[in-house]
Computed example of a mutant assay.
Amino acid sequence: MEITLQVAIDGVTYISHEEPVWRGEGNQLAMVDLRAFGLERMLEQLWLREASESGSYAVCCIPFYAYGLALGDVVRLNASGGVERLVRKSGRRVLRVLFAEDRPSADSRSALREAVDACGLLSEWNGERQVAIDVLDASIIQPVYDSVQEEIRNGTAFWEWSDVTQFRSS
């Protein structure tokens, strides 16, 4: 299980992917300022690798908070090293699931992990309450939905697609 680290420094929360799913030699880091998505004083650190287009980079982790980005998307950086714009979509999507802090007795997190594995999907966890799931083919993820459906109906889990909003920089 991959864990994401959240650290607050001087009132700014940094989200760091400790074990990105496509981690490799030559990866580099870039920040996404999340203000454009209504998340003030939050930055998400993304892992990148050089892409075939000159000056472009492919995303190597599954974004938790940055909307409109997914694993393998190609981005360009600004002069200060932040993600400035989306160049090309990879065709992948990110399904995000957030579990409420108060956990019911019928906790579906284990069932969700099993369903993700059974579907052959990649995922990254942010602690024990949030998961970002890489989806290349949405037709195979019904077991993932089914694993958390009761909690979604009960209001103890919530889900969204990361591409409900297009990527934009602050």
Rank of each mutant, 00 (worst) to 15 (best):
R49G: 07
V116Y: 02
R76C: 06
P143R: 03
A100F: 09
Y67W: 10
R49E: 08
V164W: 08
R85V: 08
N154A: 14
L121R: 08
L77I: 07
R109N: 04
I140A: 09
L34S: 09
D137K: 10
A79T: 06
A106P: 00
W125P: 00
G155A: 01
F158G: 03
L71V: 02
E101R: 15
R35V: 11
W22M: 12
S123V: 06
V59W: 05
A118R: 13
A36R: 12
I15M: 04
Q166W: 10
D33Q: 15
M31H: 09
L136E: 12
I141N: 05
L69N: 08
S80E: 15
E44K: 09
V97L: 15
R103I: 11
A115E: 03
M42S: 09
T165W: 00
N27R: 15
V97H: 10
L48N: 05
A111P: 00
V21E: 04
E2D: 08
V32W: 06
V32A: 11
K89L: 13
A100W: 10
I141R: 08
D146L: 13
Q45H: 09
P20C: 05
G82H: 13
W125E: 02
L77F: 10
R96G: 08
R129N: 11
C119D: 01
H17L: 04
L71Q: 03
A106K: 10
V75L: 06
V74D: 09
N154R: 14
L48I: 03
E151G: 01
T13Q: 05
D73M: 06
L71M: 11
Y145W: 13
R129F: 04
E160L: 05
T156G: 00
M1K: 06
L5H: 03
V83L: 13
L48G: 01
E151S: 02
I133Y: 01
G155Y: 00
T156Y: 01
L122P: 01
G81W: 05
R92N: 15
Q6G: 02
D134G: 12
P143V: 03
S170I: 03
M42A: 13
V135C: 02
G11A: 03
R93E: 02
R168F: 01
A138N: 12
T165A: 03
A132W: 03
S147N: 09
S52V: 14
